[in-house]
């Protein structure tokens, strides 16, 4: 896949001296969904704003669709749709007018059929004649998305699109993101919800204190850093872990009814077969076995903690 957004050694120091981006290099592939994870103040919004041209880079290069964002800004901006983190809407304006405004602003001729279609996609069609100030928070967020889609962007930036959005709506948005990807739209979203990245992203980037710690295929990331646990349930509780099982670093649950074994899925040999044999040899009877894969959230927390340490 060719990359549609290229960020090279991007640095941003704000006027107050704060270094928000410390040399970020990132290639975003055409048609993918990339999730950017990172704690508050990591630099996610700064990165997005700089690509969109709202914030000026201190140094580094950015290109979108092969055009340079500084010298060929007209071309790059036509390709980009931005849904900001903050909900900013003209309060007294009608929903459909704000969409028409966005479309015109991006140099596109009026197209009511398209605008209506976008409104329907976001379940806003019924409210098209309402003032934006009369909408609920979740609806306003959808209006922001609709505004960005009304000028048919090829790259869509969603800065925390599901903050303050209920579960059902969140699932609707995920479905929308997947639909857009099928139409060939590249999506970059920032989020604090790991389950969101897990649900829709193709790749995941982790950013912390202005540095991009990693960008990886979601599945590869889960595999590389993912740990699995086996929980072995016993018919009879044990008081202590038998010495014969010492080498497996087992954890005994409080009630003594289960033993937990953690292993890396990437290891050549996981040691499961040997462990199970050893458990039997120690005279324990199994009643059940469960495995569990660590979530992106756990991976993410570990990465950030290692960074701090």
């Amino acid at each position: 896949m060719p990359s549609i957004v290229k960020v090279e050694d991007l640095r941003k120091t704000y006027d107050n001296g704060l270094e928000a981006l410390k040399g970020v290099t990132l290639d975003i592939e055409e048609g993918e969904i990339l999730a950017l994870l990172g704690p508050n103040g990591a630099g996610k919004t700064t990165l997005i704003s700089t690509i969109c041209g709202i914030t000026r880079p201190t140094s580094g290069r950015i290109s979108v669709g092969g055009y340079d964002v500084q010298s060929e800004w007209r071309e790059t901006r036509k390709l980009i749709g931005l849904v900001p983190q903050e909900i900013n809407l003209e309060p007294f304006e009608l929903v459909q007018n704000t969409l028409r405004f966005s479309r015109g602003l991006f140099g596109k001729p009026r197209n009511d059929a398209l605008v209506d279609g976008v409104l329907k996609d976001l379940s806003l069609y019924e409210r098209r004649g309402s003032r934006t100030s009369e909408l609920s928070g979740g609806m306003r967020r959808r209006v922001l998305i609709a505004k960005a889609l009304s000028h048919e962007p090829r790259v869509l930036f969603l800065d925390e699109p599901t903050a303050g959005v209920d579960v059902e709506l969140r699932r609707d948005m995920w479905a929308l993101a997947k639909r857009l990807r099928e139409d060939g739209v590249t999506i970059i979203l920032t989020t604090h919800y790991i389950e969101e990245a897990e649900a829709i992203a193709d790749r995941v980037g982790v950013i912390n204190s202005g540095e991009l710690l990693l960008v990886e295929e979601k599945s590869a990331l889960m595999q590389r850093l993912g740990r699995k646990e086996i929980r072995i349930k016993l018919t009879e509780p044990v008081e202590v872990i038998p010495d014969a099982l010492a080498e497996y670093d087992l954890i005994r649950s409080k009630d003594g009814r289960s033993l937990i074994y953690a292993y890396k899925t990437t290891g050549e040999r996981t040691g499961i077969t040997r462990l199970l044999t050893a458990v039997q040899a120690a005279g324990l009877t199994l009643s059940d076995i469960q495995t569990r894969q660590s979530s992106l959230e756990e991976i993410f927390v570990r990465l950030v903690r290692e960074e701090v340490a």
């Binding site: 980009i80 003209e90 140099g107």
Partner: peptide
């Protein structure tokens, strides 16, 4: 007003000189 309520982001990110 757009500066105050934050809608200026859209104008600043649009392909408009």
């Amino acid at each position: 007003f757009p500066k105050f309520i934050g809608t200026i982001y859209e104008v600043l990110s649009a392909p408009i000189s």
